[in-house]
């Protein structure tokens, strides 16, 4: 608990809580960028699952720059939001569930991008069952990340470690 109190007293944490626009901007950037991250995954995974079959699968990677930029924005804004109320997230198991779901989903993306999506042979052909299952799992993991992210606002045990409500 002590380290949470210490984190809450760092200048960055205080600034995030007390300057109105800082917290608000971080929230807005976090939700918009997360929308694009999940969005790129929706498009890619739907394509792997067999929808829009005339889209050359390997070319879906050309949307990935959107993913990388959004991942940077999401991480930076996420760290700032965490800095504002560290105890709120770090004492909630759902926060770690959310991070785990995101890391697992990104591992799936990496494996699909380096395998299936690298092979022009699958541009027009049906993806193998294993790849389709991974694509479906990825969509489920993103849904889980979104769900746990939203529930963080409802399920926290405490807002701050230094003065508990």
């Amino acid at each position: 608990m002590d380290y949470l109190v210490w984190l809450e007293e760092t200048p960055c944490s205080i600034w995030m809580r007390e300057s109105g626009p800082a917290f608000f901007s971080a929230l807005v950037f976090h939700s918009v960028a997360m929308g694009f991250i999940v969005g790129v995954h929706v498009a890619t995974n739907l394509r792997i699952l067999g929808f829009a079959p005339s889209v050359p699968l390997s070319l879906m990677k050309r949307f990935f720059p959107v993913l990388w930029v959004s991942l940077i924005v999401v991480s930076l804004s996420g760290v700032l939001l965490l800095a504002a109320y560290p105890a709120k997230a770090l004492t909630n198991p759902l926060f770690f569930l959310k991070l785990t779901a995101i890391v697992a989903a990104l591992f799936i993306t990496r494996s699909l991008a380096n395998g299936l999506m690298q092979d022009p042979g699958y541009d027009m052909n049906r993806a193998p069952t294993k790849a389709r299952m991974l694509a479906a799992l990825s969509l489920l993991l993103w849904a889980g990340a979104v769900t746990s992210g939203r529930l963080l606002a409802y399920t926290h045990n405490m807002l701050m470690a230094s003065h508990q409500y």
């Binding site: 929308g35 969005g39 995954h41 929706v42 498009a43 739907l46 979104v146 529930l151």
Partner: peptide
Amino acid sequence: PAAETMHYVGLALLIGTVGM
């Protein structure tokens, strides 16, 4: 909270298809 979560899923579907 459940409605909010579904609202975000709908948003992601829109960004992922219309946005792309």
